[in-house]
């Protein structure tokens, strides 16, 4: 695995290697040790279940950032046929941190929009690590409005460490671009399905995150600020990120409890990167199920329900006024 593993994955990968070595050895020596191998495999399964059922928030953040975790481009090639990528915001440029275009999922037409982080250094630089500029948010909205005109559902995949904090981004109105999307996405006349597939950092994620159904992969995170950013501000020390991750309640399980998301999508044991193909199939099933629920609604119903959905978020109390 090219040394690309997380600390808590290490015992699992070591055991896996041991089993593989035993199998190779048995095959080479023509020895019959299958019962022994089976025992080790049982042990592996137990270890995996043990490790992955007790992940801390920070470990989940690490899984969400795993270098081999499937990204938007992987889901496009694994799930969509006849994909045609569309570029640019018709105004300033084409933001490579966001991929958008038409595609077919089981023959059904979709406008697909997703953030792309890139995997190797060259790709990461090309995609700006999945950090969008204002033109990215404007490109996304342009494509969504196109889908709305032609009455096609929109699938949005969120995977970003945040909107890009830079001079150009501020000059071109990062805040305005995100704000405008939040308002205009509420007006779209077609089903909008949002899936957080990896990282969902702050306004950079929400800027393409207003939808009818919000789903999250089991080991993804979504938060008002990244754990590092939060730690730097509140603890004045970004190395306190694990602590901040715990405090922010940013896992899929937390967000379901806070009634921000509608559903958690299961990942293969060990995380999406252990079996991207299986993950894609699980995702497809969920998308089609959600689409079926939404397709019976009129455009007006969709818009009203979408506004009401976000209207209901937040927790506040009324106190007795003592003058």
């Amino acid at each position: 695995m090219n040394g690309q593993f997380l600390d808590f994955e290490k015992p699992i990968l070591e055991l896996e290697k041991k089993i593989k070595d035993m199998k190779d050895f048995a095959a080479g020596e023509k020895m019959e040790i299958s019962s022994e191998i089976r025992a080790w495999e049982k042990k592996l399964e137990k270890l995996q279940k043990d490790v992955y059922s007790k992940l801390t928030a920070w470990q989940k953040v690490q899984l969400a950032r795993h270098p081999l975790r499937p990204q938007t481009s992987d889901y496009i090639s694994l799930l969509f046929s006849d994909f045609i990528e569309l570029h640019g915001d018709r105004n300033f440029g084409d933001d490579k941190a966001l991929i958008g275009g038409w595609g077919k999922l089981e023959g059904k037409h979709f406008m697909l929009i997703g953030q792309q982080k890139g995997k190797d250094t060259k790709q990461k630089l090309f995609h700006n690590f999945g950090m969008m500029h204002p033109e990215g948010y404007r490109k996304a909205l342009r494509l969504m409005q196109q889908a709305s005109r032609f009455r096609k559902p929109i699938l949005i995949l969120i995977d970003t460490p945040g909107a890009f904090p830079g001079i150009g981004a501020e000059e071109r109105g990062q805040a305005q671009a995100i704000a405008y999307n939040l308002r205009e996405m509420s007006n779209l006349k077609v089903p909008l399905i949002i899936v957080v597939i990896g990282e969902g950092a702050s306004g950079g994620a929400l800027g393409i995150g207003v939808g009818d159904k919000i789903l999250m992969l089991e080991n993804s995170w979504y938060s008002v600020i990244s754990p590092e950013g939060c730690a730097a501000i509140l603890w004045r020390d970004s190395s306190k990120a694990p602590l901040a991750a715990e405090a922010l309640k940013l896992t899929a399980q937390d967000l379901l409890e806070l009634k921000v998301i509608d559903k958690i999508i299961k990942e293969p044991l060990g995380g999406a990167h252990r079996n991207p193909g299986e993950q894609a199939l699980i995702l497809k099933k969920e998308i089609l199920k959600v689409l079926e629920e939404l397709q019976g609604l009129t455009p007006q119903e969709l818009i009203e329900r979408r506004i009401q959905k976000f209207r209901g978020m937040g927790i506040h109390y009324q106190i007795e006024e003592k003058e």
Binding site: E184, N187, S223, V224, I225
Partner: peptide, 26 residues
């Protein structure tokens, strides 16, 4: 900006207020 101490719920206030503005705007 959004209040960190209420986490994701603070973030969602951005969507809540902006989507109501869609109605006001219309």
């Amino acid at each position: 900006g959004a209040r960190m101490q209420e986490g994701i719920l603070s973030l969602m206030q951005m969507a809540k207020t902006s989507s109501l503005l869609a109605r006001q705007h219309k």
